[in-house]
Amino acid sequence: MEPLQNLLHSDTPILLDGAMGTMLMDAGLDHGDAPEAWNTLHPERVRKIHRQYIKAGSQIILTNSFGGTSYRLAMHNLNDRVFELNKAAAENARTEADAASRTVWIAGSMGPTGQMMEPLGEIRFEDVRDAYAEQASGLEAGGVDLFWIETMSDLHEVKAAVAGIRRVSQLPISATMSFDTHGHTMMGVSPTRAVEELEQLDLVSVGANCGTGSDELIQVISTMQETDPDLPLVAKANAGIPEVVDGSVVYNGTPDLMADYAREVYHRGAKLIGACCGSTPEHIQAMAEALKEMDK
């Protein structure tokens, strides 16, 4: 398999995938249930989503393990299954990536613990680090190619996640934060500061995901690019703004709009481009076509 690093330092954009949670809910996941449980409960449904994103053109797909730390799984009384569920998440992605006719890399998704660290909150750096180490060991056992820390708002938590991963693995790590509050993360981290601090860590790429709309995310990427023009940047915007239709949440961003976003964010310096909440394989396919044109 082609080393990911070669691709990261070429000029061509790399297409990521779209939402997992949105797709799982379409496939019948109930509100409030643990998406990670489906890795063993309904592996065929999880794999189908991976398959659809690969077919749409995704070069890197994310495992169904966003809430796979013990902190998050504890809510569903699944905290004794961290290794198993993360391993299964990686295996589901691995199966589909291996079946693809081209190279598809697997990134192990790792979201925030959902709790606040000391001194503002109660949980200690060491405990958070160990929770991410546990998750990372499951993901690596299942065959991920890299780790994908995402939707973070606290730099300390990113550092704890990186430290945890490095306890158990030497695979590449990417990290993105969510800039949803006046152009900052909830914890007040600006895009400039995120780049300045994250580039000190052992990361192959950094960037922004989720947050508010795609326009705001494009602005964040611009600022990051100005801060360090050489850093491979990740952009994963939501597919518009959430609306409720017939009792379920849908995002108002059409595939055409997401194609425009992909073009624009690539212009502004993003290297790894995908979508977040509300996006589907249709959005990713439209983005794939848009980026293919750009590449010519």
């Binding site: 949670g21 509100h31 409720v244 949440v249 909440c277």
Partner: peptide, 12 residues
């Protein structure tokens, strides 16, 4: 609610 997967529960 902080997740798109949990916000519909508010309606419930």
């Amino acid at each position: 609610a902080l997740l798109t997967t949990t916000m519909p529960y508010m309606r419930t």
